[in-house]
Each structure stands twice: as structure tokens, then as C-alpha cells.
Nucleic acid binder design. Sequence first.
RNA 1: AGACCCAUGGUGUAAUUGGCAACACUCCGGUUUUUGGUGCCGUCAUUCUAGGUUCGAGUCCUAGUGGGUCUACCA
Length: 556
Amino acid sequence: MSEENKSLNFIEQIIEQDIKSGKHEGRVHTRFPPEPNGYLHIGHAKAITINFEITKKYGGTTNLRFDDTNPVAEDTKYVEAIKQDIKWLGYDWEDREYYASDYFQTLYDYAEKLIHKGLAYVDDSTAEQIAQMKGDTRTPGKNSPYRDRPVLENLQLFRDMKDGKYEDGAKVLRAKIDMSSPNMHMRDPVIYRIKRAHHHRTGDQWCIYPMYDFAHGQSDSIEGITHSLCSLEFRHHRPLYDWFIQQLNIFPSRQIEFARMNVAYMITSKRRLLKLVQDGIVNGWDDPRMPTLSGLRNKGFPPAAIRTFCDKAGVAKRDNLIEYELLESCVRDELNKTSLRAMVVLDPLKLIIKNYPQDQTEQLPVIDNPEDPHASSHMLSFSRELFIERSDFMVDPPKKFFRLAPGRNVRLKAAYIIHCDDFKKDPETGEVTEVLCTYYPETKSGSDDSGIKAKGVLHWVEAHSAIPIVVNNYQQLFTDPTPLGHDDKDYLDFLNPDSLTVNEGALAEPFVAQTKQLDTLQFMRQGYYCRSADQNGKPCFNHTVSLKSRWKPKTQ
RNA sequence: AGACCCAUGGUGUAAUUGGCAACACUCCGGUUUUUGGUGCCGUCAUUCUAGGUUCGAGUCCUAGUGGGUCUACCA
């Protein structure tokens, strides 16, 4: 579908209307506003792509702004990690790196302005009392006894708060709006609190900090953000967002809410993810099983695939649960185009070619990526002794099985057609230990005009040149697509005990050792794998995604 | 219980804003293939319900039903 024909999502429709009407001179300016108190995950990727892609489309710019108004939770290490992840995803905020904390003085001045206008007051009530007086969704709140303090007294008290004359929590500044509003956020929200905590950027300069509602919209306004895109749970904050902008008479940024993206089998709750890390259920925030961007990166998911995925998931306002298969499809699609192919036998079974000379070895070329018209190729060693995949041989195969079995032909990829004559079994266990074959010299790959047929094609490695590798196999961390969606069960009840299994017995052609960390290969006929840190001196690969397969062995 | 938001195949998003319900993923078939991959072709919907407006409704109106959000000195 061409770009012009592609239908617009509701945010693009709003923006096109704004451009048409000449609002803000047709300028489009968005921002991505993470709080530096955790690592970015797939949900953030959605927000990032929405914000950056929309300005790419309409010729605007996107700011990176750290929403760092709560010094207790925030840290510079998160700032660095977040920046790295956004760059990795493929987006560039250029020189527009901002911090809400850059605006602390301006925000403070805004607060005094509100006090002057009689629209804010210092409240001595405790947090519990404030909550109490707030009422609930069906009961109007009660005015605080401090609500009608004179302007000058409020001003003095607020300055004293700033100057550190009160204990943490002793007083707060509240906006004076409407304690009977059906919208709880309008019931005199707290806008400043006393908190003696070291801020990662402003240090100990301040002991009062603005709340989200008093910082976010104003920060948008200060930066001239035209369209402030956020998730649906901020819908109820919008009247407050607009109220501050109006009362302060500052640049009118507009907040637009969209539905958060939910992905099957993934959770994005910071607290619950932290528990997985702390309890050692995963090996850190960047474990390939984590939905963090660093986790997906280590799993081998290319940034382009994540961008495509977010695009294909779409933007709307209804609840959604995106199937994991869509993500996998985007990953396969990208990797199919970009990954070099290699032969790796995950579960080796020895195969002897009886009529191949004992001491002979030959080099056979194999193309690196058949999807790439300019693909290079590399050489494979071939000899009398090989390994094939154990699952590619059956003593007594079902009708649709067209791999190797006694009396059958099969092609060895990039090599010869072979015929299975016999096999050996372990007398104790009954396990097949060796397959005995003969090859047809005239069926050499690339110059085969023999007319000999073989239905199946097998990958293989040559016994003496093959190198041992370690393979980490990953499955979903949870056995349920919505581990948080059960009233009667905890998400930890759905942990998949097999989410990581380590295979130390795989054999690879030497070519795979040439990869660097984070390189992705297609192990032919099996799937995509991403080079990880070596284990026990052996190259190690993380499973990214399997190849699709129309062969479904009967599991009964 | 209230206020606000939402409702289109199994999933997600469309429908030139009132004019033949489309695209992608999944599933299932077929075809091509020296990867059972890729590519290509095909099957899969009473648009939540009931009324109403209209020549004509997924779209507008009313009521209902279902789901979500909101009552932190977090963001």
C-alpha cells in the first residue's frame, strides 16, 4: 500500500485538520517523555514510534524530555540507558534533549502566579486528611479548612516551603478548583510537595518538587509542543492540563490520548518486571525473555522489525491485545531479508556415506542468503562422515514424512542426494546411533542432471570440521497470553518453567564462528539465532524466532 | 453507584466521513521451491442488541448490553 493511499489514524486526522486550518502555522511538534526510573520496554517503543513517525511524516520535530519531577525514584543511569535504547530503535532527537527539571524555576514562578490569582493555596492537612476530604467517585469532596487562606499568607507559606522551613510532608500547595467535580483530578489537586531528596540533576537545590500534573503540560507548553500524545489513562487529566495552560495563559499544547498497546504473553508493569529480576526468575533487565528493548535486542529482534510491528499494530482508542505472532512475523520478515544462512545441527545424529572415499574432503559452495540477489557465498567441507538432525531420520516414518528413512532418498543441502541403506541402534536403549547411506556422485548440487529424485532437503555438518556451540532456546516467559488478566490467579502462577533451555550439544559449520555479538544468522530449516557472549569458550547463540513450518508431526 | 472513554472476522487496524465491509497477522487448503523457509493463489463477517432518521446506516439519533479508566504528597 502506498503512503498516499494508506488510511489515516485518528491522530493523523486531527493533525491534518490542524495543518489545514493553519493552527500553529502548520507546525507539528511532539515529544517522548519517559521518567528516568526504569528501562524502556515494548510499550515505550509504541509511544516512541508514534511520536517520531508522525513528525517524520508531517515534517515536524520530536523532543526527548525526561519527566524527572520525583527525585526519589530517578537516576542518571536510566537516562543513559533510555537514550541508548531510543537510538537503537532508530530515532534521533538531535539537540532537543530536555528535562522537566530544567523548568523547576519557571514552574515555581507559575505556582506563585497561581497563588497571586487566588487559584492555589497551601494546605497543612496530612496526606490522609486530604484523601479523606477528597470524597469518592459518587460523593463530592469537602473543602479543606486551609482553602481560604489569604493570598499573601499563601505566598509566604509557599516561599517558606521552598526555603526548607517545614518538614517533608508538613504542607503542600494545592490548586483551588472544585472539590465537587465529578472528575477527581479537579478536586484541588496537590501541585507541589516537600521532599528532601537528592535530585539526579538539580542536586539539593530544591526541597519542593512539582507533581506530574503541574509539570507535564507546562513543560509541553514551554517547549511549544503542538500535539502531546499520551495513553488513555491520562484522559481524566486533560481538563487539568487545559486548566493550568489557560490560567497561566501560556502556549496551548493539546493533549491527545491513544490506547496503550498490549502484547500477548508480555507484561509491562515496572513493578512486576522488577520482581522477575530481583527474584532471579530472569537474568537481568536485558534477559532475552524480557519485554524490555534491551531484552528484545539480546534476543535478536531487529529495531526495524519492532518499528514495523508498532506500525502494523495501529493506533486507536479501544482496548487491544496484539497477538505475539504479529511480532514474530515482523521479525521473520526482516531477518529473512538480512540474515546470512548457516548450517547447524541442534541434535546430531551420525551419518556415514559408505561409498565416499575414506580420506577425501571436498569444498562445496553455499549461498549466504538466497533472498539477496547480490548474495555472497562461502564454502562447506564435505566428507564421508557427517552429522544430520536426529529428527530428520525415522526408522518407521508416517506417510507425509519426506526426510530420511531406510530405503529413501534425500538431498543434503548444497551437496548430494543420498540413499539410506541401513542404520545402527544402541542395543540397550534402542536409540539410533548411526545412519548408513550411499551417495550419488552425479547429483552434486548445481550440476545435477541425473534425474534422480529426492523429496526432502536436509541440513548437515561435516564431522571433523564442525565446531561445538551453545544454543539458548527461549519460549514465552508466561504460559498465558494475559498473565495479569486473572482475578483468581497471580501472574507468577503462569511462569513457564521451560522459558529457557540450554543446548550444549549443537554442532555448527565453522562459518558461524565468524559472527560478532548481536549478529543474527538463520540456522537453515530451523530458525533465526543471535550471537551472544561465548559460554565455556564456545560460541553461544540465542534463539530469536523459529522458521514457520507446514510439517506438523503427529503428537499423540 | 457516578463521571468519562470504547465496541467491525480468531487478532489488530481500515472503510474517500451516509454509498459494493478492505488490509495485515493467525488458521486451513493449493502452488512454486535444493530451507516443509521465502514467494504466489484461495477459504474464513448477519459490523454488540433493539428501536429510529434516510432512497440508502459499520458510520447519524435514542435506549440497552458489554468492556475499560478515574478516588497517590507516583508518572
